[in-house]
């Protein structure tokens, strides 16, 4: 029996999972929408992964979770490693592209830049409060223009004169876009302009003051947009690599971390049949009124969090 490692990346929009062997070879992978229900999404993911794995050869010996629901899913799967998505992405990318120097990542709600030297992360930056120029911005502009966001890239490539659009702030960008459409700019020029705006905004915000060296790998949902990829190449003067499996990088990274950690815990796909529920309750211990989240397997409480102090602590066991 060979050892296998499961990595799950549960983002706000999509849930990704990979099973790897000792040599980081991907044995099974899955990608589906989270649909606001991470527990359900992971159950569906496990069903899909189970069908792909050769159970006579491989046994999963450890689970790792990353992404914004990593804590919840980490509790449910009894994960060995629960890691933030930045670290997971860095490790996943360097395992596939050992020479990489710069990682661009634009997701649904955040964007980040990770700088790597000799396979080691040396610096990174993440957007602060503002979600300007992320995937959700592009989706809302697509809706305004009556175009599916998936078609943005191919349409942008047909433009000959991208419309300059103010990219500093989503609110200004939107009013600028409306104005440009009203004075007669064509749709493809506006869409290409938006792709350029995302890149300008990214390089001026998270990329500000960072030395961007090639090879560059571009990840996250927005990397599927060829218009943005092309704009990045024009702005940096370097070729930008978009991996067809780029969406799996976070899951891959955390699976590798599980393997490196060397801690093993039993795992069974039967988990997908178990009943997990979460219940929120407001603690009335003080004026903070913390929202305490309790996680149950069947009727048994398995973990709870959200309290700022001991008053809101829930006994587990």
């Amino acid at each position: 029996m060979n050892k296998a490692y499961l990595g799950i990346d549960i983002g706000s929009i999509s849930t990704k999972g990979v099973i790897i062997d000792r040599n980081n070879k991907i044995l099974a992978s899955g990608y589906l929408w989270t649909e606001g229900n991470p527990v359900q999404a992971v159950k569906r993911l496990l069903v899909s992964l189970k069908d792909q794995l050769d159970h006579s050869q491989y046994q999963i010996v450890g689970v790792g979770t990353t992404g914004s629901a990593r804590k919840l899913i980490g509790v449910i799967t009894d994960a060995v490693e629960v890691k933030n998505e930045i670290t997971a992405h860095a490790i996943g990318t360097t395992s596939q592209y050992p020479q990489v120097r710069t990682i661009f990542e634009i997701g649904g709600q955040d964007s980040k830049i990770i700088l790597v030297e000799n396979g080691i992360v040396v610096d990174y930056a993440m957007n602060t409060l503002c979600a300007a120029g992320t995937g959700s911005f592009l989706s809302s502009q697509a809706a305004r223009l009556g175009v599916a966001v998936e078609d943005f890239g191919p349409i942008a490539l047909t433009s000959k004169h991208p419309t300059p659009i103010a990219a500093r702030c989503t609110v200004f960008a939107e009013s600028d876009l409306v104005h440009k459409a009203q004075i007669g700019h064509s749709k493809e020029d506006i869409i290409a302009g938006l792709c350029n705006a995302v890149v300008t905004n990214y390089l001026n915000n998270v990329g500000k003051g960072k030395r961007i060296a090639a090879p560059i790998v571009f990840q996250g949902g927005v990397s599927k947009n060829v218009g943005v990829k092309k704009a990045f190449e024009a702005a940096t003067g370097h070729q930008v690599i978009v991996d067809a499996n780029g969406h799996l990088t976070g899951a891959l990274g955390v699976a590798i971390m599980v393997k490196r950690k060397g801690v093993e815990r039993p795992f069974s796909f039967e988990l997908a049949q178990e009943d997990f529920t979460t219940r929120g309750r407001e603690c009335s211990g003080c004026a903070n009124n913390c929202e305490v989240i309790c996680v149950y397997r069947g009727n048994k409480l398995i973990d709870a969090w959200g309290n700022k102090c001991e008053k809101g602590a829930v006994k587990v066991g």
Binding site: K83, N84, I86, T87, V121, D123, Y124, M126
Partner: peptide, 13 residues
């Protein structure tokens, strides 16, 4: 998330 990844990077360094 920001603090954890920052500490990770320092550990790697």
């Amino acid at each position: 998330t920001r603090l954890e990844s920052f500490i990770d990077i320092i550990r790697f360094r």
